[in-house]
Computed example of a mutant assay.
Amino acid sequence: MFREYHAYGPFYRDPQCAKDYRIQSWTGGAWNDVIHAVNNYQRHVRHKLPGSIRTQKLRIVIEATNGDPSAAVYEVRCYE
C-alpha cells in the first residue's frame, strides 16, 4: 500500500486491481466456477453466492488487471 488513495478520483482504476477474474471451488473432483467477474475496478469487493457450497479448496484465477503485469489480492474471507 504505497499510494494515498484518498487523493485519487472516485473512479480511479488501480493498475494492480484484478479486472477480470473467476472464483472457483473444488467440488466433485474438479474446479468449478462460482463467480465470474468482469470489468472490476474496485479494491474492496464482496460477492454473495446464490447458494451454499461445501468445499475444502477455493482459488482465484485472475485473467486481467487494469494495466499492471501482476495482480495483488490482499485478503479473502469466507462466511457461512
Rank of each mutant, 00 (worst) to 15 (best):
N39F: 07
Y8G: 02
V73S: 08
H6G: 10
W31S: 01
H44E: 08
H47G: 11
A7I: 13
D68M: 09
R77C: 14
G51Q: 08
Y79S: 13
N39D: 15
A7V: 12
I35S: 11
G9R: 05
W26R: 13
W26E: 10
S25F: 03
R59W: 00
R22W: 01
D14N: 01
Y8D: 06
P15I: 08
R3P: 08
R22S: 11
W26L: 11
E63C: 03
Y74D: 10
E63T: 09
W26H: 14
S25N: 01
D68L: 09
R43L: 09
V61H: 06
F11C: 05
V76R: 13
Y79T: 14
L49Q: 10
W31A: 04
M1A: 09
A30H: 04
C17S: 08
R22F: 04
L58W: 15
A7H: 11
Y74N: 09
R46H: 01
D68F: 11
D20E: 01
Q24D: 04
R3M: 14
A64K: 00
T65E: 00
E4V: 15
K57M: 14
W26G: 08
T65Q: 00
T27V: 15
W31Q: 11
A7L: 15
Y5C: 02
D68W: 08
C17H: 03
A64T: 01
K57N: 14
I23C: 03
V61M: 10
V61L: 05
A30C: 02
V34F: 03
G67E: 11
E4S: 13
S70T: 15
K48R: 15
H44V: 12
V45D: 04
N32E: 13
N32D: 03
Q56N: 13
R46C: 04
E4H: 11
Q24V: 06
D33W: 01
A72T: 13
G9V: 04
Y5P: 02
Y41T: 12
I53W: 06
Y74F: 03
P50L: 00
C17T: 13
D20Q: 01
E63G: 02
T55P: 10
V38S: 12
H47Y: 09
Y5T: 06
Y21C: 05
E4W: 08
M1L: 09
R54A: 07
F2S: 14
A72S: 11
W26K: 09
M1W: 03
I35C: 14
R22Y: 05
D68Q: 08
A71D: 00
A37V: 12
A72G: 08
G67S: 10
G67M: 05
Y12N: 04
A64H: 00
L49K: 12
L49C: 05
N66I: 07
I62Q: 05
F2L: 10
G9F: 02
R13M: 06
G29H: 05
I23Y: 01
R3C: 13
D20T: 03
R54G: 04
H36I: 04
T55M: 02
Y5L: 12
I53C: 03
K48L: 15
P15M: 07
T55D: 01
N32C: 05
R46K: 12
E63Q: 11
V73E: 05
A37F: 01
T55K: 04
R3Q: 14
N39S: 15
W26T: 07
Q16H: 03
N40R: 06
Y21S: 03
G29E: 08
V73W: 01
